[in-house]
């Protein structure tokens, strides 16, 4: 289901924990699977559960609890905008609105070309840089004004 490279990364995560606590690596393993596959299908979750020797429903509990896992397909790029209070005060909500208008979609929607999914996020621990947004759970973009957003969208081909 996953490439040898991803499995190697998962094995590295497993090694961080005591030998009888493989389940500790489930968050990392799900993240790695999502990175490779784009989203977490139930097959993917079951695979990870099997790999770590835990019941599939236990892995599903984890996958459905944490915000950054996607249990439904998302666009090639997932843009998560922080709209929490500190960000809101300095334009986080406005940035979200700007994006919606630009992309012609609402939160939790994907552009028709399957390129971008827009999500509303909670505090990213970067309130001083507001407005902030994250691309694909990985790349944080700070101090986003309309020009910066235009630039980012142009970049996300």
């Amino acid at each position: 289901m996953l490439t040898p490279d991803s499995l190697k990364r998962i094995d590295r995560e497993i090694a961080k924990y005591p030998a009888d606590q493989k389940q500790s690596a489930v968050m990392a393993a799900l993240a790695i699977a999502q990175e490779e596959l784009g989203w977490l299908s139930s097959e993917a979750i079951e695979f990870i559960a099997g790999y770590l020797g835990m019941p599939p429903i236990a892995a599903y509990e984890v996958a459905s609890f944490y915000n950054m896992y996607d249990l439904k397909p998302v666009g090639k790029y997932k843009l998560t905008v922080c709209t929490n209070l500190p960000c809101m005060l300095t334009g986080g909500v406005d940035a979200g609105e700007y994006l919606k208008k630009k992309l012609g979609i609402g939160y939790n929607e994907t552009t028709t070309d399957g390129r971008i999914t827009l999500k509303e996020g909670e505090c990213m621990g970067a309130c001083g840089d507001a407005p902030v947004m994250i691309v694909n759970n990985r790349r944080m973009c700070s101090w986003m004004n309309p020009e910066q957003i235009d630039k980012l969208l142009a970049e996300l081909e």
Binding site: E46, P55, I57, A58, Y60, S64
Partner: peptide, 22 residues
């Protein structure tokens, strides 16, 4: 001794369920 039901999601959307329709 076998976990078939779990509580998925969180907050007030928490739901008791099996793994995808099992």
């Amino acid at each position: 001794g076998i976990m078939e039901l779990g509580m998925a999601n969180r907050n007030m959307h928490s739901e008791i369920q099996t793994f995808v329709g099992r």
